[in-house]
Design a protein around this nucleic acid. Structure first.
Length: 415
RNA sequence: GGGGGGAUUCCCGAGUGGCCAAAGGGAGCAGACUGUAAAUCUGUUGCGGAACGCUUCGGAGGUUCGAAUCCUCCUCCCCCCA
């Protein structure tokens, strides 16, 4: 997927590549001008991305943005990552109907650690500058802050959707939250960003960056807005806090399995945003699905395969695909079943009360939950259904305990 | 500073002395159907091995045989006036 270096691509070619997959480039003309100037002078553009280290893992939704950045790098441009160690203490109101919880300094640092180590799975480290906005925002005096805020009107800030909504619904808005867009905009001023990239929910903040840069006598940055990848539920955007995400460092098994569980409706979006398949191929899949010549499940397997391949390798992707087919299509046992240890102290005469078995092996949280599962016919041992929640059952090492469709355990009797 | 409204289980939200482990919806889990998708139908979702008991309705006290519900104080939120 290496792109040609900056000098080899025409401005038009660069522009087309950059534009692909974005929702909007604002304004397009300015981007072309910047690209032309960069090419002419041989000075790479500075592409800014701000990250709030609120959630420690990078997921496919965020990867959409990172992958676009990588594209810039492959064209020879530079990426400036700004870890919002300072702004995390404010809480970005974007896309939120509630006030964000404010993180502790230790939490922020720990998250930033994880984040940065995961960046290099996608980005080219040699073309990335990593900064922390506490380095400059933290040094501003109250006077400095007031001076900056004087450039922005209250009406302008309250325009934004998130605030409007909360006001209408009578939910709280902290005064500090109004400051967030200004803080983010000052980042753009500080690093003299040529382009700022973000999800569509970043529109307001990025536009504010343009305003403040101009106020500081700089050339305004171009806003590049990426689509938000829907989460596993197919409805809300992928996010850590909603738990509907696929992390880019997840093991192949989870990655493949989670990808298979997305609703059909968002499959194409995933192909477009989360894989490296060329446009022509995605179009072909789309056509196949529409005409009914391609089975949705086959398409989804392909998707899961591509995603797994991207963050692991060909072999892992292949293995998980076969595994998936074995377990779910043929309904055979998975090849790798974790041990489920039953302490000897729980046994009497080699028997154990059925709900207890689920609890000691971690298959259920409580006896009550376990009883419910048994009553609903979710539990089998060696393929045989455990029907009576009151029964004591005889267990042996090596038996396969299955709870629901996904939870397997190979019983191991302890001392 | 003054006046009014509010906080209920994972989320939203009903409940204004016992019939309340608390309606309804969402979400989750499970079963059927399937393509481990969606949709649909059914069941289930505080804890303790039954009876029954225990813990839970913002926090702390109190009234009462009995409190999510009444009283006092506290914390937090929203609206109006200034």
């Amino acid at each position: 997927m290496r792109q040609k270096a900056v000098k080899e691509l025409t401005v038009e070619e660069q522009f087309e590549l950059i534009k692909r997959g974005t929702v909007e480039v604002v304004p397009e003309e300015e981007l072309k001008q910047k690209l032309a100037k960069a090419k002419k002078e041989g000075i790479p553009l500075r592409i800014k991305l701000g990250i709030d280290p609120t959630a420690p893992d990078i997921h496919l939704g965020f990867a959409v943005v990172l992958r676009k950045l990588r594209q810039f790098q492959d064209m020879g441009h530079e990426v400036v990552l700004i870890v919002g160690d300072f702004t995390a203490g404010i809480g970005d109101p974007s896309g939120r109907s509630e006030t964000r919880p404010v993180l502790s300094a230790e939490q922020i640092r720990a998250n930033a650690e994880t984040f940065t180590s995961q960046f290099w799975l996608i980005l080219d480290r040699s073309k990335t500058t990593l900064t922390f906005n506490g380095d400059w925002l933290g040094k501003m005096t109250f006077y400095d802050v007031i001076k900056e805020t004087s450039r922005v009107t209250v009406a302008r800030v309250l325009e934004r959707d998130d605030f409007q909504k909360r006001l209408a619904e009578g939910r709280p808005i902290g005064l500090h939250e109004l400051m967030y867009p200004i803080a983010q905009a000052l980042d753009s001023v500080e690093v003299r960003a040529d382009v700022e990239i973000g999800g569509t929910d970043q529109r307001f903040n990025i536009m504010m960056g343009r305003d403040l840069q101009e106020a500081h006598g700089q050339e305004a940055q171009v806003g590049l807005f990426m689509p938000l990848l829907p989460g596993l539920d197919g409805v809300q955007k992928m996010s850590k806090s909603l738990g509907n995400y696929i992390g880019i460092t997840e093991p192949p098994k989870n990655m493949f399995g989670k990808a298979m569980s997305i609703p059909d409706e968002v499959m194409l979006q995933y192909f477009e945003l989360a894989t490296n398949l060329p446009k022509e191929e995605v179009d072909q899949i789309k056509k196949g699905l529409e005409e009914g010549t391609l089975h949705p499940m086959d398409a989804k397997k392909r998707l899961a395969y591509e995603i797994t391949r991207l963050y692991h390798d060909e072999e892992a992707a292949k293995r998980e695909k076969e595994e998936f087919e074995r377990v779910f299509s043929q309904r055979e046992l998975p090849s790798d079943i974790p041990d489920a240890v039953v302490p000897g102290s729980e046994l009497s005469d080699g028997k154990i009360w059925a709900p207890k078995l689920l609890v000691v092996t971690g298959m259920a949280k409580s006896n009550r939950e376990a009883k419910g599962l048994i009553e609903q016919g979710a539990v089998t041992i060696d393929g045989e259904r455990v029907a009576d929640p009151n029964s004591d059952i005889e267990v042996q090492t090596g038996q396969i305990l299955k709870v629901g469709k996904l939870r397997f355990g190979r019983l191991v009797l302890g001392e």
